[in-house]
Amino acid sequence: MITIESINKHFGDKHVLVDVSLEIFEGETLAIIGRSGSGKTVLMKHIIGLMQPESGRVTVDGTDINRISYTELRRVRRQFGVLFQGGALFDSLSAFENVAFPLRTFTSMDEREIIKEVHICLEMVDLVDVGSKMPAELSGGMKKRVALARAVALKPRYILYDEPTSGLDPETSNTIDELIKGLTDQLNVTSIVITHDMHSVLSIADRAALIYMGRMHWVGSIQELHSSDDQILNDFVKANEYQIGNPKEE
């Protein structure tokens, strides 16, 4: 379980996260939604300790990740798989090598086991035949799928997705959504999806949390999201529906 308690963060004069609190329960898929620049990605980076809050705390399974040594923090991070917005594939390594990287670095598997494991991971994301390709040769959707294969290679307990469908066409977005759903069920992980794509939220999430101007504005289940009369939440959802219905306006 991940608990975020009253965290605050400034960038210069801008108060990016204002007293943000959130609980993420074991096995659920939580979507953190909000406009661009509302602080979603900053919050994600706090969850994994890539950024430190000025006040408040983030605990992972009861461990305050800002009060432990760097070595211990790295150990905590190994329970996470992260899909970054652009994939963040290592561009000097092939797709296969990218997926093999965490296995080579953190396990004592021999080469035969690594090859087998990488194939399993690439199979999960339907990309068995791109192993030899370099990231520059892959499309945006393929890059995200390879990055997803890399994120699950060490069988993490938590997977963080940063805008998994941004910049993708609707069909590829659906494929990614299906993959996230499938992986969550298959690996029994806790998923945290940072997104502003309501279509994704409705198809994959159990709960949603809306960040508005750096504050945690609304948290609830998907059913509650449909029935909520919160003006800001409804405006956000409606704006997304309008975009889904009118793709030319995007």
Partner: peptide
């Protein structure tokens, strides 16, 4: 610099690597 702006360094850290 390219690794930093394309989040590859963050990816290394997030994996638990120094």
């Amino acid at each position: 610099g390219t690794m930093r702006v394309t989040e590859q360094i963050d990816a290394l850290e997030a994996m638990g690597l120094n």
